[in-house]
Design a protein around this nucleic acid. Structure first.
Length: 563
RNA sequence: GCGCUCUUAGCUCAGCUGGAUAGAGCAAUAGCCUUCUAAGCUAUAGGCCGCUGGUUCGAGUCCAGCAGGGCGCACCA
């Protein structure tokens, strides 16, 4: 609806310029706002105030001129008014609002989807946890945000590829293999031989047991059978990584999160991409030797100091494979790449971009884009749970899903914008299960479905493609408000995709559900005495249910028909 | 010390990329089920939008400084 108002104003401005009642040479963009106060109409425009200075006229006088040039040929508007310091307020006619219900019916399950992305390719990398342990609550937040971002981008018309990057090489993995080996040999963390960086979690024992039993693990695209020899550290490494990958895959599956592509850090080494990218950086003149190490001139690209690429012992620092990985993403044709990760990794942003710039292969300076989510503080029993993977004390994503439920866990994570810290109080989440906002929204959907059942029993079908006359029964402020709320789903989807902020959809849902619940308590839908009104209301609620379901689906949350 | 980020009701958080009288949920108080699901609704109460300046018709929103919280600042990932 908003997009239909702006052209009216633009046409009026042009007409006013044409007959010289307005004279400005630099016309600001027409911005259509939605007044907080319903008494100020459905939409408002501040253009008169912006023009006042250039026109050397009072804002209200400019507004007068604009309105006198306004031609609403399609009968969209009931009326306009000039208010306050110079706002132009627009009151959309009930008929126009009622007609939007027909659009929702026509689009059905596609209502809310837009064409903004024009089916261009975008790749989203998220979670990307090290395969050194089960996923914890922090990964849960990343998974919820990343997955929903993918769904949102898809809904906004992008061609989305979901990718998971496994850091299965490096020191952490060596620690993992060593920890499993020690467990195989029956050495406990309190043993003096236990190394400082060893992983102490109980799951390490499970891995060791499975390894000694020569089990086979199938994870994603990987099949690994243990040889069972506790002396074969390399085989232990492969097995442990596969075992933990499978665990993570199961966690993510339980969270309804799936990926299209998995990339292993080790493959970047084995395919020679890491060596290659270093050679290219040297060839580009961006590297230099010093103190037995190879450095990247990252300060030339906005970093605050140069970074070591190859250590004195000949191994690479972690960001080098990362640069190689992103080079590969670029070569795969992704002109748009978004990385969702914890803000504790934000220092990598500058380094990866610097490395890519140094390659000088035409990658834009701001590529890739990043969504960084803030840390989750976990509370249990009124105390903060310190997360330590090595000590094995943390809350797993699996626990959370089992205790709180998948839908509620997703919704809870998605209610906060990514860059705000959040507290996840587990006791509260469990205790308040019935008061969790997700149930409030789902309940609205279930309630509507229940009304349809009742209506069917009493012989009231939900009408299809109703006449304007029937729709004209929907006249109460609440009913029109419900329609207005539904009408913003497509722009909400676009906003989420543009700002990488899925939380906007949770607020959309809460508002829509609230409006419905209010109507439900105030009016009876099924009324034997007034079949026309019953019909119209059933139609209104059918669109409401569709809108709720579509929005929930974009969040990866179910829309139950019964609760 | 440097960089990023955050600070809005008792608590958890929104605030649509500068608009009109700052919102919601929880907690509190008072009401609403012989009628389509009370996992619901209605009403009341609750605020120096961290502080101080600046930009302009107009600032919770933009800029600068200050205070406080978080995260980074390794040849760990």
């Amino acid at each position: 609806m908003r997009q239909r108002i702006a052209p009216l104003i633009e046409a009026a401005l042009n007409a006013a310029l044409f007959d010289c009642t307005l004279t400005t040479t630099s016309m600001p963009d027409v911005i259509i706002g939605t007044p907080a106060n319903a008494g100020h109409g459905d939409f408002s425009c501040n253009i008169a105030m912006q023009l006042a200075k250039a026109e050397r006229k009072a804002p209200r006088q400019v507004a007068e001129i604009i309105i006198s040039h306004l031609h609403d040929e399609s009968g969209l508007l009931d009326r306009t008014e000039i208010a306050g310091p110079g706002f132009i307020n627009f009151f959309v006619s009930p008929t126009a609002w009622q007609a939007t219900l027909l659009e929702i019916e026509t689009q059905g399950a596609n209502y809310g989807r837009t064409a903004s992305g024009a089916q261009k390719k975008v790749q989203v990398e998220f979670v990307s946890a090290n395969p050194t342990g089960p996923l914890h609550i922090g990964h849960g937040r990343g998974a919820a945000i990343g997955d929903t971002l993918c769904r949102v981008l898809d809904a906004a018309g992008w061609d989305v590829t979901r990718e998971f990057y496994y850091n299965d090489a490096g020191v952490q993995i060596a620690n993992l293999a060593l920890s499993v080996q020690l467990r195989c040999l029956g050495i406990e963390p309190d043993d003096p031989r236990w190394p400082e960086g060893g992983y102490q979690g109980e799951y390490i024992k499970d891995v060791a047991r499975a390894y000694l039993a020569k089990e086979t693990v199938e994870a994603s695209d990987q099949h690994t059978t243990a040889c069972g020899d506790p002396q074969d550290l390399e085989d232990i490494r492969c097995f442990a990584v596969a075992w933990l990958r499978r665990e993570q895959d199961l966690d993510l599956e339980a969270f309804d999160v799936r990926f299209d592509v998995y990339t292993l850090e080790s493959s970047l080494y084995s395919e020679g991409r890491v060596d290659a990218v270093v050679r290219e950086l040297i060839a580009a003149g961006q590297a230099y030797e010093q103190d037995n190490a190879l450095w990247l001139r990252s300060t030339d690209f906005g970093d605050d100091k140069d970074r070591v690429m190859r250590k004195a012992d000949g191994t690479y620092t972690y960001f080098v494979p990362d640069v190689a990985y992103h080079q590969a993403k670029w070569e795969r044709g992704f002109t748009r790449v978004i990385n969702e990760q914890g803000s504790d990794h934000h220092s990598t942003v500058t380094r990866v971009r610097a490395g890519l710039q140094a390659l000088n292969i035409g990658i834009p300076a701001g590529w890739p884009e990043y969504v960084l989510h803030q840390m989750v503080t976990v509370m249990r029993g009124g105390e903060e749970v310190k997360i330590s993977k090595r000590a094995g004390s943390y809350v797993t994503l699996r626990d959370l899903i089992d205790e709180v439920g998948r839908d509620a866990t997703r919704f809870f994570f998605l209610m906060r914008k990514p860059d705000a810290q959040m507290v996840f109080d587990i006791d509260l989440a469990k205790q308040q299960t019935n008061e969790n906002p997700v149930y409030y929204v789902q309940y609205a959907h279930a309630r509507i479905c229940s009304i349809f059942e009742n209506a069917a029993e009493k012989g009231f079908p939900v009408p299809e493609n109703p006449s304007a006359e029937l729709l004209a029964c929907l006249t109460t402020p609440e009913e029109l408000q419900l329609i207005k709320l539904m009408s913003v789903l497509p722009t909400t989807v676009d906003d989420c995709a543009l700002h990488f902020e899925p939380h906007r959809l949770t607020y959309f849902l809460s508002e829509l559900a609230s409006c419905f619940h209010s109507i439900y308590n105030k009016n009876r839908v099924i009324s034997e005495e007034n079949p026309a009104l019953t019909s119209a209301r059933l139609y209104l609620l059918k669109r409401t249910a569709q809108t709720l379901k579509n929005a929930l689906s974009i969040l990866g949350i179910s829309a139950p028909e019964r609760m």
